[in-house]
Structures are given as structure tokens and as C-alpha cells.
Amino acid sequence: MTLGGIDIVMLIASMMVAATPILLAATGEMVAEKAGVLNLGVEGMMIMGAIGGFGAAVLTGSPVIGFLAAAAAGVVMALLFAVLTLKLLSNQVATGLALTLFGLGLSALLGQGLQGIKPPPTARLPLGPLADLPVLGPIVFGHDWVVYLSLALVVAVRWYLARTRGGLVLRAVGENPDAAHALGYPVVRVRVLALAFGGALAGLGGAYLSLVRVPQWTEGMTAGAGWIALAIVVFASWRAERVLLGAYLFGGITVLQLRLQAAGVAIPVQILSMAPYLITILVLVVMSARGGRARLQAPAALGRPFVAVR
């Protein structure tokens, strides 16, 4: 099945791969922001995940250990942010920016000598003959386990926030930390845990870039993926299903414009390259502008420091 020289089935399949790093990072960031913390260091946590995961996978030869190490690296970065902003009450925006710059620099240092190495391949899920089905095979059954994990996480996060007591407390902390504290909920602990979760997912997203999508290590290889994840969270009105939509839209257009470039379509390359950013944000803005109540989805205490009086 081809259209204008582009294989649609392969396009969709590779869209899912292209979108997975952003989907993971954006889902994690959404949870942190729902708890009321604005962590602009997603890019820094991703790239630390990318180098941590790559290094661990190359050293051990196991991509699974690589992904675990990547999540751990993201958590360490997030905890650093948590100590600075929640315990020492530094400014969240400035600290987030610093975290990004710190991550970019440190990863470049750690990555000395890892350039040009090929990491061990991440296995596809052994789904047997299902993967050989026409059309459905490559799209639904032909992926590695991280793609399925990212989709499962979207469902889990949505369910957790909407249905569980923990999710309710998390939303309450992001909505009105003073009230949550007055009712006896541990505001700071909830926020630290939410940040750590966000860090772990950003780390996984980064590792997916260096272990699967590219797959090798280059300096600054996240190339703004963390920033687009942050934008997707906002334009998705802090809703998991819209984060999924935004990430896949972005991934889809990224892949499409690459194919169009390869096919030699008569559109300037620069316009093609900026298309994913432009179209994703445009679509999400139109969606969130429609429902008037959508903007109320923003956690009311997002980015505001909280100090308990005792």
C-alpha cells in the first residue's frame, strides 16, 4: 500500500517508534505537573537517560539493564531538581533550565569515547505469526517492548489519576497544596514522588533514542525532544489521551517529512523540518481552544512554591 511513493504501513509503524521517546517524557512530565511542579529540565533528564542507558547497555550487553539504568539516571536528575526546588525552595523555572544545561554538559562529558559504538539491539516482542499479518502485523504486533510499555503507561497514568486515591491526592496537591496540607497530606513527599516518576519516564525516553531509534550515541542527540514533550503536555491540557495524540502526531509528521525529503518533493527542506513542531502545536491549540473549560485543566498551583507552617 503506497501513496505518492510512500509506504503507509511502514509510515505508521515508524511513526510509533519516532513518537515513543516524546510520549514517555511527556507522560512523566504530565504527572509531575499534575502535582503542581513545573520541571523544565525534561531535556536534561532525557539526555542523561540517553547516555546512562547507552553506557549501561554497551557495558553489560543487555538493553533491559540499559533501560533500567536510564530510568535511574532520570530519577537522580529529578531528585536533584526536587531537593533544589522543594527543600531549598529555589525558583522552579530557573532550576529546570539549569537542569537541562547541566544534563547536556554532563552527558557530553560521560559520552567521551562512546561515539561510533553500536548498542545491543532491543528485541521485538516474540509475537510469532501475528507479526507476519499484512498491515496489522507491522503496525500492531511488530514493535519492541518499550513501545508497548509506553502505551501501557499512558493507560495506567490515566487510570491512576482518575480512579485511585493516590491519583486524587496527587491532583489535590497540584490544585491547592495549602488545603492538601491542612487536610494532612504530605505535599512535599507527593511532589517528590511525582517528580521521580517524571524523571524515570524522561530517562526511558532518552534511552529509547540512543538504544533504538538512532541507535548510537551523539552529543546533544535529544535535539529538543524534551522541549516538545513539555509543549505537548500544555497543549494536551494535562490529559493523558491527548498527550498520546500529540506525541503520535508529532512523530507521524516527523517521519512523513523525512520521507517527503527523501522522495524529493518540491518543498523547501527547512519548511518540512519545522512542520512537525508547527502542525502539532497548531492542532493541539485548536483542540484546547474549543472546549472553554479545557483551560481549567491546568493545575492551579503549577510552578508555585509551597511552604508548610508548623
Partner: peptide
Amino acid sequence: VFQHFSLFDALTVAENVALG
């Protein structure tokens, strides 16, 4: 019963009660 700041505007009545 607090004088102020103990409700969550974006949550429903039932969710607010559950939190207490």
C-alpha cells in the same frame, strides 16, 4: 471546617469530600 483554603476548585464535590 476551615475559614478558607481547604477546597479544590477543579475537583468535584465527591472528590473533595473523599480527600477529607
